[in-house]
Each structure stands twice: as C-alpha cells, then as structure tokens.
Nucleic acid binder design. Structure first.
Lengths: 202, 202
DNA sequence: TCATTATGTTGACAGTGTCAACGAAAAAAT
DNA sequence: ATTTTTTCGTTGACACTGTCAACATAATGA
C-alpha cells in the first residue's frame, strides 16, 4: 500500500522534526545541530538531508509551525475579548507576549532573517503574513497595496509595540523593571499593553 | 617607556577589534569567527585570546561601543528637537531607528542575550542602562526602584515601540509595507513614529 | 642579573555543515 | 517477471570552527 510507505517516510521526517524541537527547547538554537538532530532521531548524520536540503530548511519548518501557533494564540484571545477594538487589541498584544514567553526559541527563529529567510520559504511566509493580516483585521483596517497608506500606521504601531516588548523581555533587557516569575512578567507586560492598547487603536 | 609598550599593545588589540568590525559589517555576525579575525589582524589564530577570553568577550566590546553610539545618536537628536516632550520623543525614536538601520549587525548584537550576556560584562551593561535612563529622562520620568511603578509605562512603551519597529524593519518583516531605499525606509518609519510619539508621551 | 609575566607561536582535539560515493530496497517501466 | 530507476539510508571525507595545551621570545620588575 502506498499509504504504509508514506506513513513510514513521515515517521522519519517527524522524528527529525521532533528531535529538532527538543534540542531547541533544551539548549537553544545554538545546540540545534544537524548531527545532534540525527543522533537524537536515531539515524545517520546524513539522513536528514534526504528530507531537508539544509539546516535552514529545518528551521524554516519550525518557524512556519511557530507562526501557525502564534496565529492560534491570537485568534483565541481575540475571540474571548469584548467586542471593542481597544479590548481586542489588548487581548491580541497579551497573546503575542504570552506566545513569545512560552516559546522563546521558536519566537527568535521566526523573526531572525539570517536564520530563516522567509523569501526562500513561501509556505512559512504565508503563515507569517496571515498573522500580520490578523492584526490589521482586528484593528479594523483593510489592507491595501498603497505602501504609504496612513491607515496602516496603527497596525504597524501595535505590532511593533507588542513585538518590541516581547523581544526586550525575552532578551532580559527589562530585567530590573520586571519580575522573575512568569506570572510577574505577564502581569507587568499586561500593564504596558493596557497603557497603549486604547491609545493606539484609533 | 611604559607608554610605548602600552601603545603597541593597544595596537594589536584595536587591530583585532577593527578586523572584527570589518568582518561583522561585511558578512554579518555569522562570519565573525575568531580565526578569521586573527587572519585579518595578521596574527596567529590564538593571539586574540591574550586580549579577549573568548569570542563573546569581543562581541561584548562591540556591543558596548554600540550602546555608546546609540546614546550619541539619541542625545544629538533630542538636542535638535523642540522643547516639547512629544517632539523629543519623536526625535529619539527616529534616532533609534536610524541607528538600527545604519548599524544592523551591531544592533542585533546589542539585543541578543545569547550572543552577549550583559550580566557578565558590567561595563557594557552600564552603557546599555545609560540609554534606558536617557529615554526616561527625555519623557520626564524619574526612575524609581518600584518595579510596578505605573510612571514607567510610557517609558517602556516608547522604548518597546521604537525597538519593535527597528527590529521588524531590520529583519525585513515590513518589506512590502516599506520601501527599498534607505530614504524610503526612514520616511516610512517617521510616519509610524509620528503616529505614536504624542499619543504615548503622556 | 635573574625570575616572572606578557605576548606570541604552532599543534591538537572535538565539534560542525555538507559534498561524494556507495548500498539496499522499493517503485516504475518494460 | 525482469529490468531500470528512484528513494532512502549508510559511511567517509573535507574544510571550517572555538579553544585547550605546550612552547618560544620578549618585556618587566626584583
């Protein structure tokens, strides 16, 4: 049966991806090496190259998954919020931060072009674009091709804000101002988001 | 004379740093390897270890210089702005973006804790803190030890905003929405900063 | 003058990504 | 059913990396 063959092939592929995720979460992106991935997956050091052209291709897959999960984070948070733009904006920002804090390594991967050049991975690029569009839709802005459309300003501003806050927290740049535990950090982020959410959502 | 010896020592040290900067700007942080730095500086592959304990120590020095230069960017921009908080905030944000776009690799270095752990390099940490304090002073907020001080919200919000915008632009995540040339990019950033500068500065 | 420290060298080691060559097994074509 | 081709996996090599160890020379200090 062709099915059986397909399943077995996917088994190796997914075991490679699972090993990659495990390594990434354990020791950071720096310890995600092709050879260690292969070792973890129980195959030879060259086997992964039958499924991924190079290291970046693995990272692109992980990044794509990350964008999907970020999308889910935001969608469900927006769904729970009251039907006001400011509230939805706030829920979206909080979801963004929560995703970043819960998935620091994948978050880094998603936003470092020298690690994954999304131009070369259209599938992952689509998943990233979907996240951007969700921000625009939530803020009630219809995306146009006009690059200097001033309607885009709140969209880019809100995204930049959430992204900057997530990044600075992740990299420990707000260490003194914020707490140590996850709860403290989320609460502190919530305060900042509360400050800007209504101010920037039109 | 001790002076001569000191100068000669500094010569090697600075030539190592200069080679590092050149490599970083040419091929990105990925091509800044200890051995290539040594080759460029015209010394053996082990010589840099007499001046820097490891690769991170070199990066920490570069990051520290970066924070100093970012500080200068912001100070001179603030000095040129009109004496209103909104205007100063705007000038500061524009300077932040300009620095990031003009020095992308150093900017990345400064804000990636796995590359340079500022906790381990107090000198560089002080230079980073000075930038944060400048933001607070410019927004008219006096820094306190109270971690949940709501006065800090605008400071962190403005910094996050500028940082997020810089990061997203640098990593090409706003590629479609923004232009290709440096002028276009700065102008587009200026529009976003204009949108938030007054809204967030109290 | 002699001992010590600073500065430099070469050599080695384990690790990396990935190309090349090869074998077995499955699929496709005949 | 047999042959050919493609897929999937292996091992071996190459050039590269960061950094430890051992050693040489030169400057400094007692």
């Amino acid at each position: 049966m062709a099915v059986i063959k397909t399943i077995s092939r996917d088994d190796v592929r997914t075991s490679i991806l699972e090993a990659s995720i495990a390594l990434m979460n354990e020791g950071g992106l720096g310890s995600l090496s092709m050879r260690e991935v292969a070792r973890r997956a129980g195959v030879s050091h060259q086997a992964p190259y039958h499924y991924f052209t190079d290291r970046e291709a693995i990272l692109a897959e992980l990044a794509g998954d990350g964008f999907d999960r970020l999308y889910d984070y935001m969608v469900s948070a927006i769904g729970l919020a009251r039907n006001k733009v400011g509230d939805k904006n706030r829920a979206m920002g909080e979801a963004y931060i929560r995703f970043a804090l819960n998935n620091p390594e994948v978050f880094r991967l998603m936003f470092r072009c020298e690690m994954v050049d999304l131009m070369r991975y259209p599938e992952a690029k689509l998943k990233a674009d979907r996240c951007f569009q969700l921000v625009a839709i939530t803020l009630g802005v219809t995306i146009t091709d006009d690059k200097s459309n001033p309607d885009m300003a709140p969209v880019i501003a809100c995204w930049s804000m959430a992204h900057g806050l997530a990044t600075l927290m992740l990299e420990g740049k707000l260490g003194e101002a914020f707490g140590d535990t996850m709860d403290q950090r989320e609460a502190a982020a919530g305060r900042i988001i509360g400050f800007y959410a209504e101010r920037l959502a039109q």
